[in-house]
Amino acid sequence: MKVIFLQDVKGKGKKGEIKNVPDGYARNFLFKKGLAVEATPANLKELE
């Protein structure tokens, strides 16, 4: 799953980066803790 990092995550990505991460990791950790959002067209547009 492609995500946009909202904060630096040690060993995974830095704020503003767009990266592919495993689905479970994204849903169960990154999204729940507010560290990233899914890289949807709407979210990508907001990032610009």
Rank of each mutant, 00 (worst) to 15 (best):
27 R>Y: 11
42 A>L: 09
7 Q>P: 00
14 K>E: 06
16 G>W: 10
9 V>L: 06
12 K>V: 15
16 G>I: 01
6 L>I: 10
38 E>I: 08
26 A>T: 07
7 Q>S: 09
23 D>G: 11
3 V>N: 00
28 N>H: 12
21 V>L: 06
36 A>E: 01
48 E>M: 15
7 Q>G: 05
7 Q>L: 11
35 L>Q: 03
42 A>W: 05
45 K>F: 10
12 K>A: 15
28 N>V: 05
31 F>M: 07
12 K>P: 01
5 F>W: 02
8 D>N: 12
23 D>R: 12
16 G>D: 04
48 E>I: 14
1 M>E: 02
22 P>K: 09
10 K>E: 14
22 P>N: 10
23 D>W: 12
28 N>S: 08
21 V>E: 03
18 I>Q: 04
2 K>Y: 15
38 E>W: 06
5 F>H: 00
30 L>Y: 03
30 L>G: 01
39 A>K: 02
29 F>V: 14
47 L>M: 11
43 N>H: 09
48 E>F: 12
42 A>H: 12
3 V>T: 01
2 K>L: 15
26 A>M: 06
9 V>W: 04
8 D>G: 05
26 A>H: 03
35 L>Y: 12
45 K>W: 10
26 A>E: 08
12 K>T: 12
29 F>Y: 15
5 F>V: 00
2 K>V: 14
39 A>L: 07
6 L>Q: 03
11 G>P: 03
36 A>L: 02
32 K>H: 09
21 V>W: 02
44 L>T: 07
6 L>A: 02
12 K>N: 08
2 K>M: 15
25 Y>W: 11
2 K>T: 14
11 G>S: 07
10 K>L: 14
23 D>L: 14
33 K>D: 11
10 K>I: 12
39 A>N: 02
35 L>M: 07
47 L>N: 09
33 K>I: 10
41 P>G: 08
43 N>M: 13
13 G>A: 11
9 V>E: 01
25 Y>A: 05
22 P>Y: 07
41 P>L: 12
22 P>L: 08
40 T>G: 05
13 G>Y: 13
11 G>F: 07
24 G>W: 15
12 K>S: 13
31 F>V: 08
20 N>Q: 13
48 E>K: 10
15 K>M: 09
2 K>G: 04
23 D>E: 15
29 F>D: 13
20 N>M: 15
7 Q>A: 14
21 V>I: 08
22 P>R: 08
48 E>A: 14
22 P>A: 10
19 K>A: 10
21 V>A: 03
5 F>P: 00
19 K>M: 10
37 V>I: 14
43 N>D: 06
26 A>L: 09
1 M>L: 14
16 G>Q: 02
34 G>V: 03
11 G>L: 03
6 L>W: 02
48 E>H: 13
19 K>S: 07
40 T>Q: 05
13 G>I: 04
7 Q>H: 13
41 P>N: 10
9 V>G: 01
23 D>M: 14
17 E>Q: 11
29 F>K: 08
48 E>P: 09
18 I>R: 03
24 G>M: 12
32 K>L: 14
42 A>D: 13
14 K>T: 09
40 T>W: 04
16 G>S: 04
3 V>Y: 00
46 E>G: 12
37 V>Y: 04
24 G>N: 13
18 I>M: 07
24 G>A: 12
39 A>E: 02
28 N>R: 10
45 K>R: 14
19 K>T: 07
14 K>V: 10
5 F>S: 00
28 N>M: 10
46 E>H: 11
42 A>Y: 07
38 E>F: 04
1 M>V: 14
13 G>K: 01
4 I>K: 05
15 K>W: 04
46 E>K: 15
20 N>R: 14
33 K>F: 15
32 K>D: 10
4 I>F: 07
45 K>Y: 10
24 G>H: 15
21 V>D: 01
15 K>V: 08
43 N>G: 06
37 V>A: 09
